[in-house]
Simulated assay, not measured.
Amino acid sequence: MPIIKKGLNEPNIQFAIWEITESENELFDALGSSIKDDEPLAEIKVESRRLESLAARCALQELLKPYGDFEIYKDQFGKPHLRDESIGLSISHAKGFAAAAINLDGDIGIDIEHERDQVVKIAHKFIHSTEREWVAQDIHRLTQVWSAKEALYKLHGRTKLAFAEQLITKNLDRELGEGKIIEKKEGVSLYKLYQPNETPLVTVIAY
């Protein structure tokens, strides 16, 4: 059963978190035919990954119900899009959960994460110098930053972004904060970041 929530004061932005309790057949039945996807799920060999991918599409279907039927395709970088380019989308999944987000006015990124000790070991790969004092060795704060940067990465939709140098976050102590991505050496682009107090942690980022 999905949990549907909306971004704060953002009627154009919606996201859904789906806790996976169904079997694969039940998720197939729930998905129906309103969303066509060019990625054959049968090619995903690991059952848990298939379940998560199905649940993410079910969450997306819940969000898109008011707007009709849609077809999904992936670009050269693997970012999913709707053939109807007026709506931006993003999906994510973590063990036992899936998430989807749509933006009626532009691009969007979503990420869902469980807190894990491993995030401390890889912190040097994604923490910017301005973030070090705030995150310290705190697993929750490190997960907040990692999730925000994953969501920014998905929104941006291209490869070879340096997480530690090009993706910078701030104000993550607040429920509604802001993230920013540096697209070029002399320029900064600001994005809205939403991290509700959920378990697992979910991050939604849009223009």
Rank of each mutant, 00 (worst) to 15 (best):
I108M: 02
I108T: 00
G109E: 00
G109V: 00
G109P: 05
D111I: 01
D111F: 00
D111N: 02
D111L: 01
I112E: 12
I112P: 00
E113I: 14
E113V: 11
H114I: 08
E115P: 14
E115V: 15
E115L: 06
D117P: 15
Q118Y: 07
V119Q: 03
V120Y: 08
V120T: 13
K121H: 05
K121P: 14
I122F: 06
I122L: 07
I122N: 03
I122D: 03
A123L: 07
H124V: 06
F126P: 12
F126H: 05
F126Q: 05
F126V: 12
I127C: 11
I127S: 10
I127V: 14
H128V: 01
H128F: 05
H128S: 09
H128M: 03
S129P: 14
S129V: 14
T130V: 13
E131L: 01
R132V: 14
E133L: 13
E133G: 12
E133Q: 10
W134E: 07
V135W: 05
V135Y: 03
V135T: 09
A136P: 14
A136Q: 10
Q137M: 11
D138Y: 04
I139N: 08
I139A: 09
I139P: 02
H140Q: 08
H140P: 02
R141L: 15
R141D: 15
L142M: 10
L142K: 06
T143N: 09
T143H: 08
Q144D: 07
V145M: 07
W146F: 07
W146Y: 07
S147Y: 06
S147W: 03
S147N: 12
S147I: 04
A148R: 00
K149E: 11
K149S: 08
K149L: 05
A151N: 08
A151I: 12
A151Y: 00
Y153K: 02
Y153N: 05
K154P: 03
K154H: 03
K154M: 03
L155T: 04
H156C: 10
H156W: 06
H156G: 11
G157W: 02
G157E: 01
R158C: 12
R158I: 13
T159R: 06
T159P: 14
T159K: 09
T159E: 12
F163A: 01
A164P: 02
A164H: 13
A164M: 11
L167C: 09
L167S: 04
L167I: 13
L167P: 00
L167N: 00
I168S: 01
I168M: 02
I168E: 01
T169K: 02
K170R: 05
K170F: 09
L172M: 04
L172H: 01
L172V: 06
R174K: 12
R174C: 12
R174A: 09
R174P: 05
R174Q: 13
R174Y: 06
E175T: 04
E175C: 10
E175N: 14
L176G: 13
L176N: 10
G177I: 07
G177Y: 01
E178H: 07
E178D: 11
E178C: 10
G179R: 00
K180G: 08
K180A: 08
I182M: 04
I182V: 13
E183D: 15
E183R: 05
K184E: 11
K185Q: 09
K185L: 11
K185P: 15
K185C: 15
